[in-house]
């Protein structure tokens, strides 16, 4: 999977997670406030408390398992971790020039990122400001 497809997959997963959160809100409302309309007690606890608290928790766990098994996909970080930096090479958009990361200036031909740095220098003007 290349970087672009990983981003697409991450977007799909984010959408599914957002919908899962929405589903939890709906379940929580119905199981708690909805069930409180009925005067039922189970194991000395009102039904609304059991369904709204334990039920919501269990529903969230089921959704997480579903997300992890059915929606989320595994991929490796090879392209990113190798510091190949195929995306951010345009001058003036130097990714994270600061803080001990001696990224070579784009003009110097490559973005090292993983290099040795007994002393570090960073390119000026990492941002547009």
């Amino acid at each position: 999977m290349d970087y672009r497809h990983k981003l697409q997959q991450a977007d799909r997963e984010a959408r599914a997670s957002g919908l899962a959160a929405l589903a939890i809100i709906v379940f929580w409302t119905l199981a708690g406030f909805g069930a409180s309309l009925f005067d039922v007690t189970l194991f000395h606890v009102p039904l609304w408390a059991l369904a709204g608290c334990l039920g919501t928790w269990l529903f969230a766990i089921v959704l997480c398992v579903w997300l992890a098994r059915r929606v989320f996909r595994n991929f490796d970080w090879e392209d990113e971790a190798a510091g190949r930096d195929p995306v951010c090479r345009e001058e003036g958009t130097a990714a994270v020039p600061p803080a001990g990361q001696p990224r070579a200036l784009p003009a110097q031909g490559h973005a090292s990122g993983q290099g040795e740095d007994a002393s570090m220098t960073c390119p000026r003007g990492g941002t547009h400001e």
């Binding site: 997963e13 984010a14 970080w77 990714a95 994270v96 990224r103």
Partner: peptide, 17 residues
Amino acid sequence: GVLGKKLALAARQINAV
């Protein structure tokens, strides 16, 4: 679920700490 992978991808891409 929402932020996890996108942040991880971008962080590795730009070497963010």
